[in-house]
């Protein structure tokens, strides 16, 4: 009984059904575990792990401003639209409550998208394809992405960042 002390020796062999279930469950669990490291070698859909510490927010802001100045092609709602060189380093900055700037990427080209937060923790959710990443202050997270579908995407903040959280929507074009 689960509510009484068991007999003196309870270390006993399993019955057939116990052994069968233990074997099946263990096998499935080891499979789902092994999938994770193995997929880093055979698959492409893996979380990026490249990251840098940003000692000084101005260092990142300067990179964003330089990119905007050089590659600006338009403006929407006061936010510049930037068409950076294909295959280059791209900088995206989150702050309460804005994604800056609007990126215009080319389909099939690989970009290194640096995301960074100026103030508090934000969450980057690219919709409608539903890819989600955390954006932290003091850390530059490098997402190496190759847009494979063209269209208009939105970046929604999905980590609570104050009262304007629901208004923190950005844009991303793939052409």
């Amino acid at each position: 009984m689960a509510i009484k002390e068991p007999e003196r020796i309870w270390w006993k062999p399993y019955t057939w059904d116990e052994k069968f279930w233990v074997a099946v469950a263990l096998l499935w669990m080891l499979t789902t575990f092994t999938f994770m490291p193995v997929y880093h070698f055979i698959g492409k859909q893996n979380p990026p792990f490249e990251t840098y510490r940003v000692r000084n927010p101005e260092q990142f802001t300067a990179l964003v401003d330089a990119m905007v100045e050089k590659y600006k092609v338009g403006e929407e709602e006061g936010i510049p639209v930037v068409h950076p060189e294909p295959g280059s380093d791209v900088f995206l900055q989150a702050s309460m409550w804005q994604w800056y700037p609007i990126l215009q990427l080319e389909k099939g080209k690989t970009y290194r998208i640096h995301v960074y937060s100026l103030d508090i923790v934000h969450g980057m959710s690219i919709l409608p394809i539903n890819m989600n990443f955390m954006v932290l202050p003091d850390y530059d997270y490098v997402l190496t992405l190759t847009p494979t579908t063209s269209g208009e995407y939105h970046i929604v903040c999905n980590e609570y960042c104050g009262l304007g959280h629901h208004m923190m929507v950005g844009k991303l074009y793939v052409k």
């Binding site: 929407e76 959710s125 929604v156 999905n158 609570y160 304007g164 629901h166 208004m167």
Partner: peptide, 14 residues
């Protein structure tokens, strides 16, 4: 998203 007051994004630029 979770923890989100308004998924129609009222007041947002986009």
């Amino acid at each position: 998203p979770r923890r989100h007051w308004d998924i129609t994004f009222s007041g947002a630029p986009f």
